[in-house]
Simulated scan of single mutants.
Amino acid sequence: MSVQPLVSAGLHYAPAVILDQLGIVVVRTWLRDTWGAWSRDRQRIVIASGLSAVQERCVLAHELEHVYADDADCNSPVERIRQERRADLEAARKLIAISDLAEVAQWAADTYTAAAELRVTERLLEVRLNDLRGEGWPWRHQDGSRIAG
Results as ranks from 00 to 15, higher is better:
S2W: 15
L6H: 14
L6Y: 13
S8V: 08
G10P: 01
L11W: 09
Y13T: 09
A14H: 14
A14P: 05
V17D: 14
L19W: 07
D20M: 07
D20F: 08
L22N: 10
V25Y: 06
V26A: 04
V27P: 05
R28C: 03
T29D: 08
W30D: 03
R32Y: 03
T34N: 07
T34W: 01
W35Y: 05
G36F: 01
A37F: 06
A37Q: 06
W38N: 02
W38K: 06
R40Y: 06
D41I: 04
I45F: 02
V46H: 03
V46M: 02
A48T: 02
A48P: 07
A48N: 05
G50N: 01
V59W: 03
V59L: 04
L60W: 05
L60C: 02
A61L: 06
H62A: 11
E63N: 12
L64H: 08
L64N: 03
E65R: 10
A69P: 03
A69G: 05
A69S: 13
D71L: 15
A72V: 12
C74R: 08
S76I: 09
P77R: 15
Q83P: 06
R85H: 14
R85Q: 15
R93W: 14
R93S: 08
K94N: 10
L95P: 13
L95Q: 13
A97K: 11
I98S: 12
I98K: 15
D100S: 15
L101H: 11
A102I: 08
D110S: 01
A114M: 12
A115D: 10
R119Q: 14
V120C: 15
E122G: 03
E126A: 06
E126W: 11
N130Q: 10
N130C: 01
D131C: 03
G134W: 07
G134F: 11
E135C: 02
W137N: 01
W137S: 00
P138W: 00
H141G: 01
Q142L: 10
Q142K: 09
G144A: 10
G144K: 02
A148N: 07
G149H: 04
